[in-house]
Design a binder for these strands. Sequence first.
DNA 1: AAACGCAGCAACCGCCCGTAC
DNA 2: GGTACGGGCGGTTGCTGCGTT
Length: 416
Amino acid sequence: MGRAPCCDKANVKRGPWSPEEDAKLKSYIEQHGTGGNWIALPQKIGLKRCGKSCRLRWLNYLRPNIRHGGFSEEEDNIICSLYISIGSRWSIIAAQMPGRTDNDIKNYWNTRLKKKLLGRQRKEHQLARKSGLVKQDTIKRSGGVGGNSTNSHSAVPATDDQNPYWPELPVPAVPTVLPQQQQQPCFNDHASLRKLLIKLGGRFGSDVNHNHETNQVIQGRPANIQPTYQVLDDDNYSPYAAAAATTQQMDEHYSGKNMQSLFIPRCGIHALNDSSPSLSNDVISPHQFAQTHYIVNTDNIDGPGNGIMNNMFQGQGGNYETDQLKEMVVYNNNDNQHRFDGLEFFCGEEMMVNNRITSSYGESIGWGEMLGCPPVASSSDDYHDSMDRLIMPATPGQERGFANDQLMSGYPGEAL
DNA sequence: AAACGCAGCAACCGCCCGTAC
DNA sequence: GGTACGGGCGGTTGCTGCGTT
């Protein structure tokens, strides 16, 4: 049985809204609210509009404190980092950006940001190739966890300029013999784009980290990451290091000893706080955390299919009780498929090999570079400066727990 | 000046989910 | 437990304005 239409499409007006219609709708909602029924609302106020159309008009345009256009660099960063983490969950992304609507962000991403980022990455990579800085990581490609040659073709870049926006990606060390059609980049879908962005932004070295300067592989915490993280205690969710975790704490975290901790990058707090009045500086509550940050559940990392749960919650204006929050955040794995279905790209052919997350390329351009920010700073001050400008740190994978090879052993509900 | 192409954006479409009955 | 319904969301469409030829 088919679904009944929400309204009589023959008798409803479509297309752009007139100022009179806007005024009617706005005036009514400001005085009476929506009444909890969008379908009935247009009839109440004598609008020949579909209820859903009214809702959309209100949410995207008439609602107070809506901002249009003029996205800042910081907002760009937020969008990018959240897109990488959760994909095209525009409503969730919009929830982190007061005054922005999901529709606006979606349009901005599709029309500008995507091109801007990919264009910049492509340009920089071309420069890097010209200067001979592009290295070829034969270890990872041929023998590493990501060395499944059958999985690597989709990211093999085209070398022509057929599409001015799609970036040229690092050329695999081992030439892949594939039909020409397969060698063309296929980034015209979101999943591919997200994979690409992860490649661009993440130095996801699975259980290792690759030092670009020395060509060394670093175990555990990357050497260029300073201990500037707040670590939240798992039991009471209170920051036990208000300003920063110690080096030891970070090392423990990266080595897996402190796997019950929740952790977030300070820069993320700051960046979000700047636009989120409900958040206090430096110390966040469980509720705030749930509203705004990713939570890494490293429970049962040794159990099959119970590895990382990299999650994000939308506040939706709700007030989660602490226990409820804890259940949702860490302990309740029952509904993970539903909550994490935006993360399926982590299991893409390049990213998930043998239950590990990996990058197709040993090297890639970090977010800082991609977004025009300075590369990882050598000094502490420079580091903080760059981090404060970036919601995504220079090595985002680590902050999300990818540094440990056990973390990405899959999440519940996901067949690996 | 006209035609054309493109980018940006508002609005719509259709699917999914939660909930009430 | 099944069904109908409304809300919410992501993807897509189509209009408009601007720049280029």
